[in-house]
Computed example of a mutant assay.
Amino acid sequence: MNRLVTVAEMTLRELTRRRGVLLLLLLMPLVFWMIRRDSYVGQSIRALFLGISWAVSTAALFAASGARELEPRLRLAGYRPHQLYLGRMLGLWVLGLAVAVPFFLLTVIDANNLRYAGIALAMLCCVAVAAPFGMLIGALLPRELEGTLLLLTVVAMQMLLDPASPGAKLTPFWSSREIATWAVDHTDAGYLSRGLLHAAVVTVLLIVTVAGVFGVRLRRRRHLHHAPLT
């Protein structure tokens, strides 16, 4: 447990020391919110959720990419693969919550007649899914540019697809749109239960996939070379 906390702290220090990164993490959800603020309140809430998801996923992508050079040294120091990816994921979840809290307060101040518990749950789902999703992209696509473009494609699909279509349910952040419908439009609890179930299933699947990808990559030990026989 101590090593998980240590890796989480390392991840947070690496991200928080970049003030420009922190500014962008807060700017992206704010821009998404402001673009839709003059229209229907439900649109601005849904856009805000996508902004938070994009911000946390991007932070996770850069954290996974930036840790590639550090991971072999931590493995030599005795860290297990699960301690590295779970600790990093824990740090990203903490960072995601820190990003989401001020925007939750913004919705409380700026918007009326909402189910604020649903808003909070939707933001938690966004953070829960975004951290392993960004880490998975960072593990599969070592170049940050390709990973960022893939994230942009996913967010664009999320915005353009009809939430009621079968394809929309295959996107990682569909849960936030369902919960937003319950919180903004005061629909029946089916929207809430479907959203929570979708977020739980996607989060578990992403964590398991991240565990498999990181487990294989970290056990290869590319930093070790066999000396030729003489």
Rank of each mutant, 00 (worst) to 15 (best):
T230W: 02
E69Y: 12
Q83R: 10
Y191A: 13
H198Q: 15
L95V: 02
V129Q: 12
L26N: 09
W54C: 09
G167S: 06
V204H: 08
A8Y: 04
F49A: 10
L86V: 00
V5E: 06
L151P: 01
D185W: 12
L160I: 07
T153L: 15
T6P: 00
V108R: 07
L161Y: 10
L224T: 03
Q43L: 07
M157K: 09
L48I: 00
F133Y: 13
D188V: 04
V202R: 01
L22M: 15
E69Q: 10
E178K: 05
T230M: 03
A199M: 10
L160Y: 12
F133G: 10
D162S: 09
V99Q: 04
A131L: 14
M135N: 09
N2G: 14
G66Y: 01
H226L: 15
M123C: 10
R46E: 00
Y40V: 08
L192H: 09
A77R: 14
L27H: 03
R13M: 03
L114N: 03
V184R: 00
R75P: 11
A211E: 13
A200C: 08
R80F: 09
R36P: 03
I179V: 10
L206H: 13
H223V: 09
V127R: 02
D185G: 14
I52K: 07
R19N: 03
N112D: 15
A200W: 03
L4C: 10
A47E: 10
L23Y: 12
D162N: 06
Y85L: 11
N2P: 08
T148E: 04
R88P: 07
D162I: 06
S176I: 07
K169W: 14
T181N: 02
H198C: 09
A55N: 04
T107F: 12
L90V: 08
V5C: 14
V127Q: 00
G87R: 07
M10T: 11
L224I: 03
R17E: 08
A164N: 04
S175K: 11
H226V: 12
S176K: 01
A200R: 03
W182R: 07
V127H: 06
G147Y: 08
E9Y: 06
Y191C: 04
